[in-house]
Design a protein around this nucleic acid. Structure first.
Length: 243
DNA sequence: ATCCCAGTTTATGTTACTTCA
DNA sequence: TTTGAAGTAACATAAACTGGG
């Protein structure tokens, strides 16, 4: 039989007289004879030991039991229960931590999703604008050619050049920048850096609409050579997100 | 044979509420 | 009507048990 089980074995079953720390006689008084909680002093000692070692060597268990006036089995059970309490507490803490992390990620995902939708919308607008201006250009050209055919020669239109691509006003650009500013990211575009080149490159987005991914990535690099947009992800990740 | 763990049972302590003198 | 003691149901928690690995 296991050490310290003498008393316990005798106490199995209901309404057992499971004496713990008290060597009290088996009086009929329930309050006295039934199991009772350990004293504050006993708990303090047990907690103190538990802090340094959550598992007890048999010899230490015997010693502690003697010191506290408990059965070794009681000490063993106390440690067992204490480990269980500690574990459930730890699980609860880990759960809270994971939940916080999840909530943060979920909220970041939502804001990125919104940003993506805004960018897609903006891309669509720009694309539509460029298509419209191309159509206008073609109509103008056709009209002028017609007039040459109709009207004669030497009117200065003999060497027609295509119109330059339409430029957008700063007002339109502000709108676009407003869209990017959703996030608190501090890249130059978000801050409203209106470099001519960047603007041109952004306006050329419609030209890339049907590009294969590899080429698109090259184009992306040309738009953002310094990798500012890549602060937290690779360009491929951005492209994945875009498509 | 012994220990540990997860899950369960049992006893106790606490609190809020009710009853009654 | 107010007050305080006694009783108690509901709940939380600790001590102990059970069965399996």
């Amino acid at each position: 039989m296991m050490e310290g089980e003498e008393n316990i074995q005798a106490s199995k079953g209901k309404n057992v007289e499971s004496f713990t720390c008290l060597e009290a006689p088996r009086k009929k008084n329930k309050k006295i004879e039934n199991k009772r909680r350990f004293s504050d002093e006993q708990i303090r000692s047990l907690e103190c030991i538990f802090e340094s070692e959550s598992k007890l060597e048999p010899r230490k268990k015997m010693q502690l039991a003697r010191d506290l006036g408990l059965q070794p089995r009681q000490v063993a059970i106390w440690f067992q229960n204490r480990r269980a309490r500690w574990k459930s507490k730890r699980i609860e803490q880990e759960y809270r931590k994971l939940k916080d992390e999840y909530d943060n990620l979920a909220s970041r995902f939502e804001s990125l999703k919104k940003e993506k939708e805004s960018l897609q919308l903006e891309l669509q607008k720009l694309s539509d604008s460029v298509v419209t201006s191309h159509d206008v250009g073609r109509e103008d050209k056709a009209g002028k050619e017609n007039s040459i055919e109709d009207g004669g020669s030497g009117s200065g239109y003999s060497c027609w050049k295509p119109e330059p691509k339409p430029r957008f006003s700063n007002e339109g650009l502000e709108d676009r920048i407003g869209v990017y500013s959703d996030d608190q990211n501090e890249n130059s575009i978000i801050k409203g850096e209106k470099s001519e080149d960047k603007e041109h490159q952004l306006l050329r987005m419609d030209d890339q609409a049907d590009m294969p991914l590899a080429s698109l990535e090259k184009w992306y690099s040309s738009v953002d050579p310094s990798g500012i947009l890549d602060q937290s992800c690779s360009s491929s990740q951005w492209l994945d997100f875009w498509t």
